[in-house]
Design a protein around this nucleic acid. Sequence first.
DNA 1: GCCGTTTTCGGCCCGACTGTTTTCAGTCG
Length: 576
Amino acid sequence: MPRFNNKEVAELFANIGDLLEIKGENRFKILAYRKAADNIAGLGQDLFNLWEAGQDLKKIEGIGQAIADKSAELFETGKLEFWEKLIAEVPESLVDVLNIPDVGPKLAKSMWQELGLTTVAEVKAAAQAGKLQTLPRMGAKSEARILASIEALERRDTGRVHLGIAWPLAMTVIATLEKLPEALKVEVAGSLRRMRETIGDLDFLVATEQPEPIMAAFKAMNDVQEVIAAGETKSSVRFRNGLQADLRCLEPSRWGTALQYFTGSQAHNVKVRELAQKKGYSLNEYALTRESDGEKLSFEQEADLYEFLGLAYIPPQLREDRGEIKAAQNKSLPELVQVGDIKGEVHCHSTWSDGAQSIEEMARAAMERGYEYLVITDHSQSLGIANGLTPERLRRQRQEIDDVQAKLPGIRLLQGTEMEIKADGSLDFSDEVLAELDFVVASVHTGLRQDRETLTKRMLAAINNPYVHLIGHPSGRLLTQREAGDFDMEAIMHAAAETGTALEINASPERLDLNDAHVRRAIELGVDLMINCDAHHAAGFENMRFGVATASRGWATAESIVNTLPWEKFAMRLKH
DNA sequence: GCCGTTTTCGGCCCGACTGTTTTCAGTCG
């Protein structure tokens, strides 16, 4: 039986949506496929596992009879007849053509049917030859723009970026705009405000009575390479690093509706607007309009809008249409974990392995953040490339930790290790060595391409070892670079819950591992979670906001995160 | 194709900007 992971299934349904759109199908059908794809991608469990266990897939939001049947057919036979027929009708490669910015379904269809273009390469050649201009409503400017988009795609600089790139750039833009006297309020909206793990573009909102100077300053910023659009209240630019940013200016009285609208997600907004409709209002970014008499209500604060609709305030991280609307109606939203709740970290590196700063420097940085404890977990011996520690070096390191501890009574310093779960399934240290340490993180860094059974077995061996407290970055993914290992996460989470082994939410923006969906599932299963920056230098502790955001997106409260415990309680918890 | 404390059928969100226009379609978010 062929196994498909959620990403593969989601991609198939998303591609179906794309091709149906080119075909000109009913737009709600297209929406339904995309919604199903999104929900499958954000599922904390494998759809395949659920199906294999005989669960009713229709219980998943956005999946009805048709898509449940198609999933079952795919899992049973490894193929989908509907898809085979579809790509016989509409060339599959048009999915890529649709991915070119400024190429939508209408244009893709006309390029295909009028000019016979079915691949990005063919579209590029046609644009270079001036042939796109022959299509209706296409001129030289549109053609040049599409060619530029394709070239940007080829440079791979229009894709999504992780938060480590998007966040600092957004902060720079905000700082620039906030300096303008005309800007009354400045905020980043969109997926960055929701703290999605990757960001496609940046959305900024400014409350102002005078948009012109703000738009001008925005377009004139240092890193702006190109101004894509510039209207009266909206402009778009592209930065040198390829990221696009949109700016909207609006009257302060409409701040609440606008911020809500532009924060999204789209799926969340659709639900909010449906709710407004049921109450007899239509909602857009400017106001809530009563349909009976056209009376317009504007809201200065987002919370007021939510309240008016009978909802508790929904934090941006939850706005993904994953049940938050219902929870806000029942006033049962979780009280999300905050950065300030974190009392210590249990996974960081020093110059003893591949860190850039000494134990003392790391300890002082942790103290400055107000942490009560810090565990130094340098790499273990078999990770030679990171200067992993032998048992003998571990013992010498203990001496240095004790010396620093004597100097810094304000923080509790512990010695741990980030121990390799080796490719052959064994652990890098014997139990005798592990018993000498205060804390053990076990991680997979090698052999991530092994098959599911082998990988899962390796992980379970670590989870079942009585000396292992925490599994570091459990899936092994590197955002925008490397796929997660093919672990059976469900089995791993069950074992973690049973043994009391914690799973990490690694806060490094390249990792964010566990991801939000897995965090939510882990909480359901009663798994202990810990958020760590895996810091390799003092500045690395700044990444905590990303880890906390990921936890929040998984609906985590402080109670779900073990390192929100003060030292005494944390130490007690360790002994169990 | 999905969904239902107003519905198992008939709904399903809305506006800015661009380019090519003679009044608007396409794309995007």
